[in-house]
């Protein structure tokens, strides 16, 4: 088996054990199990998907077709800072496309790409449910709201040095 070197950390394993007993069938734990795996490994490689399949008694193809359906499961390595700019209606009306272009220019990449140094990944996303503070973006697990060029530049400066 190719996935022998891939295994959950004790922390991931504890989370996995919790979700796997939550449903009448192990198969139902696939999405939460993929989340646990993505949190640990950063993205879902073929080997990681095969590992999750093995742990849940599923076929690798079942896991792969499920994982590839969802854009929030990453099929390639992601940058340290995953910048997700909301471009839905409220944010758009308040200039999110300008913010996104600024990100592209500063990072030198387009949405869906990752910088060569592995620092940034850039994406545009649909509504993140924070219209009252538009325009906004999510970076890793945090929201950054009421964005302006100045605010965005300051954040990017900070992460470039981090």
């Amino acid at each position: 088996m190719t996935a022998t070197t891939i295994t959950f950390t004790p922390d991931s394993e504890a989370q996995f054990q919790k979700v796997v007993v939550r449903y009448p069938e192990k198969k139902a734990a696939l999405l939460p199990a993929l989340w646990i795996a993505q949190r640990q490994f950063g993205w879902l490689s073929e080997d990681v998907m095969a590992y999750v399949a093995d742990r849940l008694g599923l076929f690798p193809a079942e896991v792969k077709s499920t994982a590839t359906f969802y854009s929030m499961f990453y099929k390639k390595p992601m940058g340290r800072f995953h910048v997700q700019v909301c471009t839905n209606l409220s944010c758009y009306l308040r200039g999110s496309d300008e913010l996104l272009h600024r990100c592209e220019r500063r990072m030198g990449i387009h949405p869906g790409e990752t910088t060569a140094d592995g620092r940034f990944s850039l994406d545009y996303v649909e509504c993140l449910g924070s219209c009252g503070t538009a325009p906004m973006m999510q970076v890793n697990d945090d929201f950054h709201e009421d964005l302006t060029f100045a605010k965005l530049d300051a954040l990017l400066d900070q992460w470039e040095k981090a």
């Binding site: 073929e46 076929f59 193809a61 079942e62 792969k64 077709s65 590839t68 359906f69 854009s71």
Partner: peptide, 20 residues
């Protein structure tokens, strides 16, 4: 019962494929 093929992706980019 072998699950060799999978339909990957979504929407217009959905495509049939097999393992690596």
């Amino acid at each position: 019962g072998r699950f060799v093929y999978s339909a990957e992706g979504r929407g217009a980019t959905t495509h049939i494929t097999w393992g690596p």
